[in-house]
Write a protein that binds this DNA or RNA. Structure first.
Lengths: 177, 177
DNA sequence: GAAATTCATTTAACATGTTAATCATCTCCC
DNA sequence: GGGAGATGATTAACATGTTAAATGAATTTC
C-alpha cells in the first residue's frame, strides 16, 4: 500500500522534468532544515555545560538577558529572550522558586510584572560564563570570525526579508467559527 | 537585591574595556539566537498552512521524508527527519493511528521497524505541497536565490566545522554517580 | 462612572525536545 | 547454545513550543 518515486538521494536539483509531479525540493535543502541542523550543531556544544550548572538553554537565555538590564517587564523579556509568553511564565515561576530571579508588580500598572536577576542568579551566571565564552571562542576559531559575522548578517537579512510576509492562509474550505 | 551593569543596549562591540568583568557577548549577537530567530521567521510562514491540514511541523517533516523513499527504518528516518528517537516514536504512533503511514517489522531483525507512507498520507502531502512550494518560492524571491544558496552553504560549513568538537565537559566538582 | 473593551500575564491542553531507563531482540564469544 | 553485552525501539519524566482560553487590571466608551 505504500509506493512512490523511490529516488532518495540527489534528485538532480532543478532540471529533471521526468517525474510525474514536481517532486518538491530535496529534503536536506529545505531552509528550515538547514537552520535547524546548524543551530543544533551549535547548541550541542553548550548544552552539557549548562546542564552541569542545572540550567536549560532557555533558562540561560533568560538569565543572560537579565544581566544586561536592571529590571525588565515580562513582555519585554519575552521579546528579548525570544520566548513565547507561556514558556516564559513557566520558567520564571521556576527561576523564582530557585531564587535566581526576583519579581514584583509594576508601580503604576497592576497588570505588569517586573523581573530582575538576584545575587544568586548573578553568581550562577558568573560561574557558567567562562566555559560558555570558551566554547563560543572555539566555535569562532573553527568557523572563522569573518565568516561568522557574515553569517550573522545574512541571517538578519533573511529575518528582515520575511518580516512583512503575510502568512499565506491557504484554503481548506472548512471554516469553523 | 538586584543590581548589575545597567547597560542594556549596544555595549560597543569589542573595544570597551570599561566593565569590571567582560560583559559577555551582546545577547542578540549570539549565534544560537540568530539561528533561532531566522528559523522562526521562516517557519512562521509555513505553520498556518500546515495547521490547516492538521499537521505539525515535525509530522510534515516525517511525511515529506517518507515520500522520498519506498520504505525506511525508524532509526534512519530519525536521522533524515532530524528528530530524536522518542519524538519520532510518539509521532509515528499518532501518524499510524491516523492511517497516514504504515509500519511493519523488518524481515530479518525483529528489533527494527520499517515505515512507509500510505496512500492517504501521499494524498495529504499532495494537498499541502502546492501552498508549501508557493511559500518557499516567495521566500526565495524576497531573499534572493543566490543568497539563499550561499546561506545554505554557510550553514552546512558551520555544521561541518563543529562536527568533531568534543562537548567541553566543564567541571562542577560534584560528581554524583 | 459602570459596562465594554483592551491589555499583560497566566493557565490549560496538547505536541515536541531532551535525557535516562526499560524492553526486546541480536551478536558475539566461550 | 547459552549468557554477557550490544543494538533498535519504546516508555518515562520533565522542560519547552504552540495555540487557545481564562484571569485580572487598566482604558475606553457612552
Amino acid at each position: 500500500m505504500a509506493r512512490k518515486n523511490s529516488n532518495d538521494i540527489r534528485p538532480g536539483q532543478g532540471d529533471d522534468a521526468s517525474a510525474r509531479r514536481a517532486p518538491m525540493r530535496e529534503f536536506s535543502r529545505s531552509l528550515p532544515m538547514s537552520l535547524l541542523r546548524a543551530r543544533e550543531a551549535v547548541m550541542r556544544q553548550f548544552r552539557p555545560s549548562l546542564r552541569n550548572h542545572g540550567l536549560t538553554e532557555q533558562q540561560w537565555r533568560i538569565l543572560r538577558a537579565l544581566t544586561a538590564v536592571d529590571e525588565i517587564e515580562v513582555t519585554e523579556l519575552a521579546r528579548v529572550a525570544f520566548l513565547l509568553g507561556p514558556s516564559l511564565s513557566r520558567i520564571l515561576r521556576d527561576l523564582e522558586a530557585r531564587a535566581l530571579i526576583e519579581r514584583k508588580a509594576a508601580e503604576n500598572d497592576g497588570r505588569r510584572a517586573v523581573v530582575s536577576i538576584s545575587a544568586k542568579g548573578l553568581k550562577l551566571i558568573e560561574a557558567v560564563a567562562p566555559t560558555s565564552e570558551a566554547i563560543y571562542a572555539e566555535i569562532t576559531r573553527r568557523y572563522g570570525a569573518r565568516k561568522l559575522a557574515e553569517l550573522h548578517e545574512m541571517l538578519g537579512t533573511l529575518e528582515a526579508s520575511l518580516a512583512g510576509m503575510n502568512p499565506t492562509d491557504d484554503a481548506v474550505a472548512e471554516a469553523d467559527e
